[in-house]
Each structure stands twice: as C-alpha cells, then as structure tokens.
Design a protein around this nucleic acid. Structure first.
Lengths: 113, 113
DNA sequence: ATTCTTTATCGTAATATTGCAATATAATAA
DNA sequence: TTATTATATTGCAATATTACGATAAAGAAT
C-alpha cells in the first residue's frame, strides 16, 4: 500500500495526472514562470532565482523534464532548458474542454427551465 | 527537511501548485472526468466507478475540495459533489496565458530573423 | 428505538517526495 | 595536465501521500 495504483486508471487520466503532478509544487511552477520570462536558461540561473540548493533545483528540473513540460539541450558544458509547448498545449486543451462542457451544461439547464 | 518550503514562494505559484497537485493523481482526474459526465453525484457513485475503497475515495474527494476543484452540498444523508467552475477557470486562464506568451515569443523570433 | 445507508475519520503500513551535503561527471579554461 | 565551471547523482533524514480496515457520525427508513 501507499503507491498509486496507476495500472487501474486510463492512459488519458494517467497522462494528465503526470503533467499536473509535475506542476504540483510551487518551485516547479516558479521554474515554468521563469522560463516563460527568459525563454530559455541554464540550471544555474534557476538556482540563483530560487531559494533552493543546486541539487534540489536539478531534481525539480528532472521531474519537469520527465513529465514532458520542459526539454533540455546540451550547450557546451551547460544545459539549456526551455518549455515544451506540446505539453502546455495538451493541458490547455484539457482545461478548455472542461470549461466548454461545463458551459454547455449550464446553457442546457437554462433552456430546460 | 522533506516538507515543501511554501513560505518561500509567491501566493500565485502556491495557488497554481495547490490546484495542480490536486489533479496530480489519476484517481482524482478520473473523479473530475466522472463529475463532468454526470454533472453531480454522491461519494458512493464514485466508489462504484473507481477501483478504490470508500475511505480512499473519500480522502481524494477531500483533497479535491480542499484545492477548490469541487464543492459538496449536503443532500439528506449523502453529499452531492460537483465541479467548482471557478478553479477550472483559473487553471484554464493560467494555461491560456502560457500558450499566448509562448506564441508571442515565437512570432517575435520569426520577425527578427 | 432500531436498523440501514452514506460519508468521514482514525490508525497504520507501504511508498513517495522534498531538500541538501557530499560527491561524481563532463565539458571548458588555464 | 590541472583547475574551473555546470549539472547530475548518491545517500540520507524529515515529511507527505496513498490505500484500506475498522469505526464513528448522522440522517433516513422501518
């Protein structure tokens, strides 16, 4: 017990959960925010920006990368990180669809009444 | 150590992380999906729908409620749960803004080149 | 009043996450 | 070659999460 029963849920639900989980920590939201501001940067820049030690930032970057939210490219002896638009687009579509469905339901209820 | 240093991050980042974290488990994504389909339901319906025991479902509902993603209203001896549109709208806006900013950056780069 | 139904809470075990010091790795600079 | 720089990994302690059986709480039905 204790571990999530991933195999009991759909791929879609697991995929959304994986991305959402990656954004489930303020440091990682802050990293995304920073990357959005500077377009791309190296790990050290984020270490200077956040109140966390280098290994901790490296770990958060690893999780964001693992969830597909960012991608890194080797640039000399450092690694250049940037947001992966595809993951953001997927999350955007997910929440857009929920909003649309909720709005449709609301309109239907108004018509019925 | 071990606990998230919530006090070191902005309210905005903490707020997004709180909602994202709530969706960071496939069971909770599945609950939102189900609520979207049936509009509103009671805990027992979700217990029948998911491969999880009643206390586990109750706990997941508590977390979704705590993050503001769902709301419950007492209905006789059961509790009627539904999606809280405000939280969804906030997340939708968050991802829309990221997408817009990424798109703007892309356009700018095209102009410069 | 007693039973049934529905949900929440408690207690607990298993596992995951967070954070960092120390260290490893790998490319660059001297 | 030997620093130096930039990241990643390891190891570990503190804490959080996940899951569920047992049980409590509270309204509904008999």
């Amino acid at each position: 017990m204790g571990a999530t029963k991933v195999e009991n849920f759909t791929n879609k639900h697991n995929a959304i959960a994986l991305m959402a989980k990656a954004l489930g920590h303020p440091a990682r939201v802050a990293i995304i925010d920073y990357l959005l501001k500077v377009n791309s940067c190296i790990c050290g820049d984020i270490v200077n920006e956040l109140p966390l030690a280098q290994p901790t930032v490296s770990q958060h970057l690893k999780e964001l990368k693992n969830a597909g939210l960012i991608k890194g490219s080797i640039e000399g002896n450092s690694i250049c990180y940037c947001i992966d638009e595809k993951a953001i687009a997927r999350l955007q579509t997910y929440f857009d669809n929920i909003s649309i469905k909720l709005e449709n339901k609301k309109q239907l209820l108004l018509i019925i009444k």
